[in-house]
Design a protein around this nucleic acid. Structure first.
Lengths: 196, 196
DNA sequence: ATGTAACGAGACACCGTGACTTGTAAAGCC
DNA sequence: GGCTTTACAAGTCACGGTGTCTCGTTACAT
């Protein structure tokens, strides 16, 4: 996630990276995004808010988007698949509820949207961003596979429709992203197969 | 779409607005977005490419996003519902095919994505953008209503899943947005009801 | 103690913003 | 025809963020 050589081989010469500066930068970015929106956040602003030299930001992250992607990674890390309980549909409901809750929590959706927009003109950022998305997609796919193996269309398309509906609502705010959405999605998924 | 008083009551005093300047601005914005991506397009660049004074842009559009939204409106205007042929599923296939083809054509998706990101910090832009999206949603909803009235979940959610899948693929480019998607979507819709 | 690299702070040239000014062009009104 | 009004191309200006650079300082290993 960082540029030079991320904790590889334990480079032991010179002053070590300040973890408190790293934290302050990620926290400053997050709180600025909540207050002003992703588009209005600047690296200069992040550095000042974090009480850090601007070069310290540039040393570890090439762009604003990279900072946010790392912050997002930390938040998303806690969102894994539950241990199978034997009732895969209940596990799926649990996973969707938690996913939707996380995505709906400011500033997650706005940040991801902004990073996506920035990615169009930034190949490196785009690679990292797509790895993040692919991780999310794979989790849902696994959860669906546990519910059955006989779907009317490819599982990838099912994943696209579920996460797509979530995104579409986050972008346009014309419907809830929460338990109500989970309930409707489960009804749809039930209609699409998931027989085992 | 324009600020001062859009062709209202036919204001007839003073030099009339130059339509060639308007065209040049919209065309310049579009071609710059194709070449450099939405995020890299500047009002200064648009004005220079169009061979127009910068003030001429600011006089009619408050922001870069507003320029693009007007350009998008022109493109999207040609994308209406087909005359009902008596086979609503065929009409739906036709509509989806044309919708997906338009959305996948550069720079449409990138521009809409960028405008959405800009909208977070711009209430006026957000209003206009949401009106545009609402129009698209209403069209699909109507097409779906013609296919049946007995769906397993609310029609709005169905719309979200269809357009959501399209958007999600456009954002992440992990799957096609074209006839292949139409085919899978139709299979799903068939499973969800659409009985009349 | 010495070497190395990260740190906070700040300077710098560059670019886009958005408001402004200038002189000119195109319309309706008298 | 002259007058008024508004749009036009071109150019200016102060402002703020970018990304690079240089300072002097600080933390850790040898």
């Amino acid at each position: 996630m960082t540029s030079p050589d991320p904790e590889a081989a334990g480079r032991a010469v010179g002053r070590p990276r300040s973890d408190s500066a790293r934290r302050a930068i990620l926290d400053a970015a997050t709180s600025l995004a909540i207050r002003d929106g992703y588009a209005a956040v600047t690296i200069k602003g992040i550095a000042e808010t974090a009480g850090v030299g601007r070069q310290t930001v540039y040393r570890w992250w090439p762009t604003r988007g990279a900072v946010f992607l790392e912050a997002l990674g930390e938040v998303g890390a806690g969102l894994g698949l539950p241990e199978p309980t034997g009732d895969p549909w209940a596990d799926l409901r649990d996973f969707l509820d938690r996913s939707f809750a996380l995505a709906a929590k400011p500033p997650v959706a706005g940040v991801l949207l902004g990073v996506t927009a920035d990615s169009v003109a930034d190949a490196d950022l785009d690679r990292t961003r797509r790895a993040y998305i692919a991780t999310r997609r794979a989790l849902l796919r696994t959860a669906l596979e546990r519910c059955g193996s006989d779907w009317v269309v490819s599982l990838d398309t099912v994943v696209d429709m579920v996460y797509g509906a979530m995104w579409y609502r986050l972008m346009n705010e014309h419907g809830p992203v929460g338990p109500e959405l989970t309930a409707e999605v489960l009804i749809v998924l039930d209609s699409l197969g998931g027989r085992r």
